[in-house]
Design a protein around this nucleic acid. Structure first.
Lengths: 190, 190
DNA sequence: GAGGAAACGGAGCGGGTGTTCCGGTACGGG
DNA sequence: CCCGTACCGGAACACCCGCTCCGTTTCCTC
């Protein structure tokens, strides 16, 4: 843990993580390492010394957010209204997608960082199954909808970050609403 | 038109277009020019002589398909059932997305080739407005749905090609169904 | 079939990125 | 306060990309 001894090294490590958090949020986990180093005000060699692989850096940046995600999932499962729980997760996912590109890349496993949070992604996936099953039993879902439909929706939302940023926010929100309506069992506005 | 005189040059031009069609369909209109040249069995200089810019090549490859698209749009507008017309366009878009990545990139203007078919994209957009308006008047759409919701859906479907190919096909189809359900005014399976 | 123009193709330039090497810097224990 | 060493950072290597230059090949005409 505290293998780093000198104070400047420790401070630099912190600066790298902070810079990577901003950079990855804006440009995804595939953002250039030089850009992260530049934003942190250090050289790229220093970055590589602290984090030998990109996955190490991604892990350090997202560990806390991924945990927070899991907590939201468990809270949604405990919601007394199954549909509200599921809809909240989907809306939260869309919201997060708008201002943090990195986290969803990891959750969906589309980046090279797929293996970093393998355990957490499995739990995330299992939780989603539970959420959908609960909503289905409660009659909140359209007939025939399963967890893979929800995943397709989440993937669609996440993929929209490929668009130019000024368009993506509005489109992500709109697509989220359409998908919620498409999953739901009745036609009242969700 | 027939400014190309020598037979070998004409044959090479054809081979470039064929190779570009395959390459762009698989990897999008941003695919490496070297890859197109390699697939055509010629050097990159020859490719650039026939098509000085990437947009020239994209134009030559997609002109016919874009026209066919416009024809489908007009046919959908003429459909006696407004919902069937709109749903057919969305399903066709998803189907096309699965086996040809290039065409939808141009239609949505997400690539660098946005300006190539500017005229056709405008017509496409106007046709979509008409389709949606017709469906809305016929009561086939959920309350509050507008053409931008449909566009958000199309963008979501198109963006899914970022996924690894073996996943994208199934997910695209699923998302298409969810979106159709989300746009439609009642809950019967569309 | 010989000559010249048309066309070809690979080497190469400029720019970008991931990753490593090594001479220089400055922290901190003594 | 001093010096060893942990640490730093820019230069550099290897690769991929768009695009161009120029020596070589091939076609077509006469």
């Amino acid at each position: 843990m505290s293998r780093i001894r000198r104070a400047d090294a420790l401070a630099n490590r912190e600066r790298v993580v902070a810079a990577a958090r901003e950079t990855f949020a804006a440009a995804g986990v595939g953002a250039p390492m030089r850009e992260v180093a530049r934003r942190a005000g250090i050289g790229v060699a220093t970055l590589y010394r602290h984090f030998p692989t990109r996955d190490d850096l991604v892990g350090a940046v997202l560990a806390r957010q991924v945990d927070e995600c899991g907590r939201q999932m468990r809270a949604a499962i405990s919601d007394t209204d199954p549909w509200r729980g599921l809809a909240g997760i989907i809306r939260g996912f869309a919201e997060r997608q708008i201002h943090d590109r990195a986290l969803n890349e990891v959750l969906l496993g589309s980046g090279s960082a797929a293996a970093v949070f393998r355990e957490q992604r499995l739990e995330h996936s299992r939780s989603l199954n539970t959420l959908v099953e609960r909503a289905r039993r409660a009659g909140a879902l359209r007939a025939g909808v399963d967890a893979d439909d929800v995943r397709a929706g989440l993937l669609g939302i996440a993929s929209l970050r490929q668009l130019p940023p000024e368009r993506s926010a509005a489109v992500i929100t709109k697509l989220g609403d359409v998908i919620l309506a498409g999953l739901r069992g009745d036609t009242r506005t969700p």
